[in-house]
Nucleic acid binder design. Structure first.
Lengths: 163, 163
DNA sequence: TCTCCATTGACAATATGTTGTCATTCTCGC
DNA sequence: GCGAGAATGACAACATATTGTCAATGGAGA
């Protein structure tokens, strides 16, 4: 059996090549993070998808609409809407009137939602600590800044015209 | 309407916090990359999911099985299997006998698959170039190394025990 | 050889995410 | 006020990904 080839972290200073490699690494990492998050939160009945929504609402100082959450997570409005609807049915989130927009209600945590988020944080933190020990804080912070810069480039860019 | 809060690239040297931020950025970036890839390859009839499979098979020096591709991409065997089956029906990939394992056939590109991959690269490269110009090659390379390190940590780690 | 067991491909069920469409609501310019 | 256009929530169809299960295959050790 062939073993999965691990493309060398190329010392090539070609910025395009490096950026292509970075993008490929984000794609490769994503599935593993989802799987790890699902496993980590399994006992809480919290999928990675729901955890992302819960965490985003919990972390935001200002109250958010469904569309806000979708923009933050980089997902479609409709995907997040379905998750939020389910989580409202499950009593984790509730809608609050939005004085600025009657139709676009604000999403906020219920007491149960806050409890679940606290439990999730209690699991996430030591897990993250273990990963941080293997990464180093400086590299992690630097990489996070670079990814944020890439994200902003994608947000500003016109949807690529495909030709 | 509230605008999506952009968490400051925190100067806090706490490694756990930095790693948590990095993970969150990977999640936020992923959706935007998928959307950009879909848009970029739309005219070729190539979704981001298929593009990832095509690119992985094309880039590998050694022939790969379906399970190999799944491991490289960090996705489940079954997801990749379905994509490969569809792409075989579409004439982009073909199965080749695996001398080491009769059941686990090797996946390789057909001529049509090679052509499509070349066309995809012709679109990907200038797009990546534009992003690289906004990132800087050194930062991109450094971030790619950090993400690869994080990926290896997740691959080595036992599936987190969820408690 | 034979048994155990991990790996693999196939299939089904389900969860998650995108795209398209529509009516409603808001914003902006006049 | 008023009309045009953008933003929003609802709904449907489809694409993608995970999980669970099963039989077939190959590898390692008795």
């Amino acid at each position: 059996m062939t073993s999965p080839p691990d493309p060398d972290p190329d010392p090539d200073p070609d910025p395009t090549h490096a950026t292509g490699l970075l993008i490929y690494e984000v794609l490769r990492l994503h599935g593993r993070l989802i799987a790890a998050g699902d496993a980590l939160m399994a006992g809480l009945g919290l999928s990675s998808a729901r955890w992302q929504v819960l965490g985003t609402v919990a972390a935001s100082a200002a109250p958010l609409t469904v569309s806000d959450v979708a923009r933050i997570l980089g997902q479609s409005r409709q995907s997040v809407q379905r998750l939020v609807n389910e989580m409202e049915r499950d009593g984790l989130l509730e809608a609050a009137a939005n004085p600025a927009h009657r139709r676009a209600t604000l999403v906020r945590l219920t007491a149960a939602g806050r409890d679940l988020h606290a439990a999730a944080e209690a699991r996430r933190l030591p897990w993250t600590e273990g990963l941080a020990a293997g990464l180093g804080g400086a590299d992690a912070a630097q990489a996070a800044r670079t990814l944020a810069a890439l994200r902003r480039l994608l947000e500003r860019a016109e949807p690529p015209a495909g030709g």
